[in-house]
């Protein structure tokens, strides 16, 4: 049975305005995205290595090598630490500034500039629901059709 919905209720839902916390969360996500190495999956991830096929570089030629040469895998295990762990560790290694954390520059004394999220030119207006910037009605239309609140999780 298909439930009947009121068009007005749906519209009101759409006009939901993001609160400050949600906007900040989005902004943080956008900055984090700028740090990513890849935006797609490993293209070789689905390759199934047959056991019969000799793998590259290791095992087969080992006996002929004179030096013990540890494998890359060994060092991965040996020095395994994440970036967050390392930052934490640094707090005990260099507890007092100047250190890694204190070296980060503070915010600029100049006011932020705003650019249209659609075309990149200076903008004067803010989208009410999501806080994105836009410069003209045309760009607002594009923004509402494509981005505005479209990828809120």
């Amino acid at each position: 049975m298909t439930s009947r919905e009121s068009g007005r209720v749906k519209d009101a839902e759409k006009r939901r305005v993001l609160d400050d916390a949600a906007r900040k969360r989005r902004a943080r996500k956008a900055i984090e995205a700028l740090e990513q190495d890849n935006f797609h999956e490993d293209p070789h991830a689905d390759l199934v290595m047959s056991k019969k096929v000799p793998k590259f570089a290791d095992s087969n030629e080992k006996p002929t090598r004179k030096k013990k040469a540890k494998s890359a895998e060994y060092y991965k295990m040996r020095f395994r630490k994440t970036f967050a762990q390392l930052v934490e560790e640094d707090a005990s290694f260099r507890p007092d500034p100047p250190n890694y954390l204190s070296a980060q520059v503070p915010p600029s004394k100049f006011p932020d500039r705003h650019f249209c999220a659609v075309c990149g030119f200076p903008s004067n207006y803010t989208c009410i629901p999501c806080g994105a910037r836009y410069c003209c009605v045309r760009c607002l239309g594009t923004h509402l059709d494509t981005r505005c609140l479209k990828w809120t999780a």
Binding site: A27, A30, I31, L34, V105, P107, S108, F110, D112, F115
Partner: peptide
């Protein structure tokens, strides 16, 4: 700050 990184 143009992309929201609050730094000089």
């Amino acid at each position: 700050s143009d992309v929201g990184i609050p730094q000089m």
